[in-house]
């Protein structure tokens, strides 16, 4: 385990690593897609449990797409 200050990892082609996003760690494109997917699934499950009879599931999809987009751009 490295205990010293870790150097920010270099992206394979240098463009995908983000250092100034709001997430508490360095992310590359794969990470951001992954986070968006995780959030998407989580929102859908919660929606099925608590919101569905009143609001249709498509709203959950829309909501997670918006959040996913935000994570992709700003994460």
């Amino acid at each position: 385990m490295e205990t010293g200050k870790p150097p920010p990892p270099q992206g394979k082609r240098g463009e995908s690593i983000k250092e100034n996003g709001f997430l508490p760690f360095y992310t590359n494109a794969f990470d951001r897609v992954f986070i968006s997917l995780v959030i998407l699934i989580g929102i859908h499950l919660l929606w099925l449990r608590f919101m569905e009879p009143t609001l249709p599931i498509e709203l959950a999809t829309a909501l997670s797409l918006v959040i996913g987009f935000y994570v992709m751009r700003r994460g």
């Binding site: 010293g4 200050k5 870790p6 760690f25 992954f34 995780v38 699934i41 499950l45």
Partner: peptide, 27 residues
């Protein structure tokens, strides 16, 4: 699937934690 979902999320967090990609680690 749901259990795998939980496991994969945890695994990924573990991976992030051990690969030292947290910001501001030690100072």
């Amino acid at each position: 699937l749901i259990t795998l979902y939980l496991t994969i999320v945890l695994c990924w967090l573990l991976f992030i934690a051990i690969s030292g990609r947290r910001k501001g680690e030690v100072e």
